[in-house]
């Protein structure tokens, strides 16, 4: 494997709540190679979104990164100043969210959003910024880009808004795009087009993608490798083919079996997730390699 672009080492993120300290991310480690698409899957509360926010140091109070390293091209992001982080966010690492409407400013035109990013990160203004913004809209497949440049977010459909978010995110040519459930709020036909767009842009822009999702169908279509999270821990990590063909962890197996598909038998009960960790299993977060590139909780491997 090439030198990792991003290397998350032993990351721990905690939340101080009235009921005590909650460990949302528990000794999480993974690498992401240049141009690789890594899926982080898990259910709500598994820590997948907090992991992605931690990478950008965007965890809000009462959340706090309490340990580990986030190595970006070999440099620890946890040692950067806030000013240095601002320069990295958007420029080197960009992020898109599930609901673009809440990330877009209703008083800004589509063009304003992209130009703000260009001015901040690339020092582009005026006509040059406008041309680059229209080009960015064309790259994400928005038709009549010069006209859409002047539209406001509320005038666009959900799929179009997500395209605009992607255009804003990609306008500064980041090396990594973090996408947190980017198509969950969209209709299936729109989702299919956005997923195809992400695959195309990965190749054209030579960027890596960290994809947070609960949808194993999207993982199968997009990802090169997958990490499966459960209660703040990675329980299994492997190539996408290995995860689907040879899942080792009982949680991964149960999760895969419980998904209804177009092959599901009609009028037949679905399998459910039966596995629940014992306190002993829950206390350990170390993984062992069971095959090249395939890591699983140590107790599963008998370690």
């Amino acid at each position: 494997m090439a030198e990792p672009l991003l290397s998350v080492r032993d990351l721990q993120t905690q939340f101080n709540t009235d009921d005590g300290v909650v460990t949302a991310v528990d000794h999480v480690s993974f690498d992401l190679a240049p141009r690789e698409i890594l899926g982080v899957v898990g259910e709500s509360g598994s820590g997948k979104s907090v992991t992605s926010l931690s990478v950008l140091r965007l965890v809000a109070n009462p959340g706090k990164i309490v340990g580990g390293q986030i190595l970006w091209k070999g440099e620890d992001l946890l040692k950067k100043t806030e000013a240095q982080m601002r320069a990295i966010r958007g420029d080197d690492i960009a992020m898109i969210f599930q609901e673009p409407m809440t990330s877009l400013n209703p008083l800004y035109t589509v063009g304003n959003h992209i130009e703000e990013a260009l001015a901040l990160h690339q020092g582009l203004h005026g006509q040059a910024a406008r041309e680059r913004a229209i080009q960015a809209l064309e790259e994400v497949g928005i038709r009549e880009a010069p006209a859409r440049y002047s539209s406001y977010p509320h005038q666009l459909s959900g799929g179009m808004r997500q395209r605009v978010m992607i255009a804003v995110a990609l306008s500064c040519n980041p090396d990594l795009l973090i996408a947190d459930e980017p198509t969950t709020a969209l209709d299936v036909t729109v989702q299919a087009r956005i997923l195809d767009l992400m695959l195309r842009l990965r190749t054209e822009k030579e960027m890596a993608i960290l994809l947070i999702t609960h949808n194993m169908g999207i993982v199968a279509k997009l990802c090169d490798r997958v990490v499966v999270m459960h209660r703040g821990k990675i329980v299994e990590a492997a190539t996408v083919n290995d995860i689907f063909a040879q899942p080792r962890h009982p949680y991964t197996r149960d999760l895969l079996k419980s998904i209804p598909t177009l092959d599901s038998a009609p009028k037949t009960r679905l399998a459910t997730v039966q596995w629940h960790p014992t306190p002993q299993q829950d206390a350990h977060s170390n993984l062992v390699e069971v095959a090249p590139g395939h890591r699983v909780s140590a107790w599963v491997a008998g370690g």
Partner: peptide
């Protein structure tokens, strides 16, 4: 048909063929 085809299949071999 379009609706059915748009559903991502949780099987890497088939999902990629469809794409």
């Amino acid at each position: 048909r379009e609706l059915l085809d748009a559903i991502p299949i949780p099987d890497p071999a088939r999902a990629r063929r469809a794409a």
